[in-house]
Design a protein around this nucleic acid. Structure first.
Length: 110
DNA sequence: CCACTGACGAGTG
DNA sequence: GCACTCGCCAGTG
């Protein structure tokens, strides 16, 4: 069967998973993709998040890359700084290299 | 319609 | 551990 995919459908699947990441925890792009039923498509998660309109309710700041670092956006680090501040406000610590200890903070859905 | 451009990560050498 | 390839989607001009 050829599954008819509506453009933007993947974005919705991704947003639905991001919305579930609890406060004080982080998830990786690859993890979000996996949970959204899009294994090995971490990049799509990045695309989906970059397409977010400002002022949305999604906790997009809880998504970091597989190395535990915040991915840069090409907006001169502005949004990256916002992201870091929000995470620190939730109690998440960064080491001197700007790395989050995933072993401690990564979200593990039941 | 085509070309280009992004919040990634696993695999390979 | 580093450099490189490749897979994959949606918006813009």
């Amino acid at each position: 069967m050829s599954e008819t995919r509506i453009p933007g459908e993947r974005h919705q699947l991704i947003y639905a998973v991001v919305a579930q990441v609890p406060r004080g925890r982080v998830a990786t792009y690859g993890q979000i993709a996996q949970l959204a039923g899009l294994p090995r498509q971490a990049r799509l998660v990045g695309y989906a998040l970059s397409a977010l309109a400002a002022g949305n309710r999604l906790p997009w700041h809880r998504v970091v890359n597989a190395r535990g670092r915040i991915s840069e956006r090409g907006d001169d680090g502005r949004s990256a700084l916002t992201q870091r501040r929000r995470l620190e406000k939730e109690g998440i610590r960064f080491d001197a290299d700007g790395v989050i200890a995933l072993a401690q903070y990564q979200w593990r859905p039941e």
